[in-house]
Amino acid sequence: MTSIGTGYDLSNSVFSPDGRNFQVEYAVKAVENGGTAVGIRCKDGVVIALEKLVTSKLMKPNANKRIATVDRHIGVVSSGLVPDGRHFVVRARAEAAEWRKIYKAPIPVHSLADRVGQYVQAHTLYSSVRPFGITAIVGGWDSETEVPVDGQVGSGPSTGAGGKKEGGKHGGPFLYMIEPSGLFWGYYGAATGKGRQTAKSELEKLDLAAGTLTLEQGVKEAARIIYVAHEDSKDKEFELEMTWISSLSGPTKGRHEEVPKEIREEAERLAKKSLDDDDDDEEEEKKDDKMEE
């Protein structure tokens, strides 16, 4: 870190002469130490998974959830400073509630990402605050059907609305990742935290842009990726936390929910199995090496 001692890294609102904001870069370091989190945008839903590192054996297993629900249809996970993640969620929920107050409908995922992105960015502008020490993954489902105004009475024509354009695609799965700088993009697959490099290269192999991966497959892949990414920090214990949001016709009916225990455990079993298989392969290769000696 060449910046140390130059003085340009001490205040949030001060640029260095070469145009960098060091406080934001330090915040990124906080993220790089957090447990790995991934999000996968499948064709019929979104999966969010987290490698929750167990910090104490005195904490109840499967309690202290880290993936949060915002409104009904959006899930948020973050890597980095846990309290910063909590505050991020509080803000996201407030934005979603404010949207409902005015527009009387659920907030579209991209609008939520935009609003929380603005909020995170604002924390890079003032010397009185520090940037968020998290990278957050926001996943959700925008309804593919017509959404009534909240509290609606009456229903319009029995034959349905006139002049509708048939075959238009509306709503669907959405996934965004927001960094400490406030930068955010939409992704097919997103990963952050300690094992992000491994996770990203695994995500790239899935060819998510093709839009063929189903939610069911996505759950298994997400679990596997978290297990693969955990290989680098094998000494630490972890829990796999996993949630999903499906289409209205899918298992969660457009809501953000925890992946049911049975499905998660099956995915974990497969994840462990695939890791064992890889290990066996490696050992066999080593044996081959030995025989050559």
Binding site: V149, Q152, V153, G156, G160, A161, K164, H170
Partner: peptide
């Protein structure tokens, strides 16, 4: 997306599709 829609908003502020 929704085609044509008509809403009535009478005096008290209730909304009727």
């Amino acid at each position: 997306r929704h085609g044509g829609q008509v809403y009535s908003l009478p005096l008290g502020g209730s909304l009727h599709k």
